[in-house]
Each structure stands twice: as structure tokens, then as C-alpha cells.
């Protein structure tokens, strides 16, 4: 019972927070897309807008994507150990 109450309260708090900060406006996304298309080449001098987005406007996301890939590889090595083969780890 207590755990259910705690879970309910947590879900309520999460819902309130998400609803306060959620602004359903497709215009912002459209603005960002058109901003990238208009200014990408002027800002960096590269023709491929996708590269400019993931290496300039959204570089932070790219860094954490690389970190995620590395964590998953560590998990693969750790889980597949039991076959033997190498002494390292």
C-alpha cells in the first residue's frame, strides 16, 4: 500500500513537471530547422547541414552518444567473458 502511494505521488510530480514545461508548438521546431538551413553554411562553411547540426549546434549530444556506445561495448565484453580466450579484464 505504502509503495503504491509513493509511486502514485512520484508519477503525479513527474506529470505536473512535464506538463508545465511541455509546450506543444511545432513552430519552434520549424524555426530551428529553417535557422539551421539558413545559417549552417554561413556559420561553419560546410555544405552538409547534418554534420553541422551534430558537430556544431548539438555537439553536446554527440559527446554523450559516443559515451553510450562505449558503455555498451564495455557491457558486451563483460557479459561475453565466459568463453575464455583472452586473459585481460
Amino acid at each position: 500500500m505504502r509503495r503504491k502511494v509513493i509511486a502514485f505521488v512520484l508519477i503525479l510530480i513527474a506529470g505536473v513537471i512535464l506538463l508545465t514545461y511541455y509546450t506543444p508548438s511545432p513552430t519552434t521546431e520549424k524555426m530551428m530547422a529553417s535557422y539551421a538551413m539558413a545559417n549552417a553554411e554561413k556559420d561553419t562553411g560546410a555544405q552538409n547541414i547534418v554534420t553541422v547540426v551534430y558537430l556544431y549546434y548539438r555537439y553536446y549530444d554527440t559527446l554523450f552518444e559516443a559515451l553510450t556506445l562505449m558503455v555498451s561495448i564495455v557491457a558486451v565484453i563483460y557479459i561475453s567473458y565466459h568463453g575464455g580466450g583472452s586473459s585481460h579484464e
Partner: peptide, 14 residues
């Protein structure tokens, strides 16, 4: 300026 060098370097590392 010189963003091209930065882009190529990041792409190579990734």
C-alpha cells in the same frame, strides 16, 4: 573561422 578543420578532426575521431 577554421571550422572545417574542427569538423574533419571530430569526424575522424568519431
Amino acid at each position: 573561422g577554421h571550422f572545417t578543420i574542427f569538423l574533419i578532426l571530430s569526424n575522424t575521431l568519431i
